[in-house]
Write a protein that binds this DNA or RNA. Structure first.
Lengths: 149, 149
DNA sequence: CTCAACTGAGTTGTGCACAACTAATTTGAG
DNA sequence: CTCAAATTAGTTGTGCACAACTCAGTTGAG
């Protein structure tokens, strides 16, 4: 029987670590005028441009309730444009503007800054990443079983 | 030079894992009518009752901007009461109501459910918790250096 | 003793995260 | 061919998380 002590709980460690990292990103991203979730969307688009909202949602595990207003803000900031698909009027394709593409240069150094802050070597990052991915999958499977979508 | 690829980044793994766990808590806490941050406050109070808002904030790393409305909701739900300190009128002490104390019984099983969902043994939990704590400390120290509070 | 600086809680405003919903469009079973 | 079901974005409402602020109360340098 696990205890109810805050210190014992992995979830609180996860919650704290996630907030700490986000708060570091806040400082680092100030220069680019991006929030962390906005940065994630830009990363996805820098990797592959011209994506459907649905595809971005699948990659980042975010629904339209989160993405729609976020993308609207990115468009207002002049970083992306949105176009309804001609062949399927339900879909919206998100593309980088020139400003959005150019911003990639300013972002080049960010991963190294974050890496340095974590003081983990490449192997440590890979191992932790693998453990977190396993954890995420396991927890999501359990939740699906408890409360089917 | 680290890449800008989303898949490579530990931070995204952390972000995903944290959201997965929170979403499991959402299901598990439905019964208690608590959100995850509210549950954290209740955990802190079950461990030690009659705490100042300032103390809760220090333990959970939350400021009054987050805690004040959260505590107001817990009070509205009848789980806690708030009293200005007589000896220092700036401070507010948060105490469990009888309902709030009783709720602890309903929460007893939660850590085991979460533990099961993570499919980690006790040693695995302890190790990961230690790594996350180290990561949090390292990242926070780095951020402090970049942007002094 | 005084008052400027500090402290603790609360408020306001912004942006996620997510549930629940709407609206428009597409698809496919019959 | 038709229309009910499914799909895709978007909207609305709630609750964090946090910056920036207010305000009352306390403290301590001079």
């Amino acid at each position: 029987m696990a205890s109810l002590r805050l210190d014992d709980q992995l979830c609180f460690g996860l919650y704290s670590a996630s907030r700490a990292v986000t708060s570091l990103y806040r400082v680092v991203l100030e220069d680019l005028d991006l929030t962390y979730p906005q940065y994630l969307v830009m990363l996805a688009l820098w990797e592959q441009d011209h994506r459907l909202v649905k595809e971005l949602g699948a990659e980042l595990n975010l629904d339209s309730g989160t993405l729609s207003p976020l993308l609207k803000r990115l468009q207002t900031a002049g970083l992306v444009v949105r176009n309804r698909q001609a062949d399927d009027e339900r879909s919206v394709r998100v593309s980088l503007s020139e400003t959005g593409q150019a911003l990639r240069e300013k972002a080049q150094g960010i991963p190294d800054v974050i890496g340095a802050a974590m003081s983990l070597d490449e192997a440590g990052v890979a191992r932790m990443r693998a453990e977190l991915d396993r954890l995420t999958e396991s927890v999501n499977a359990y939740r699906e079983a408890l409360a089917p979508a």
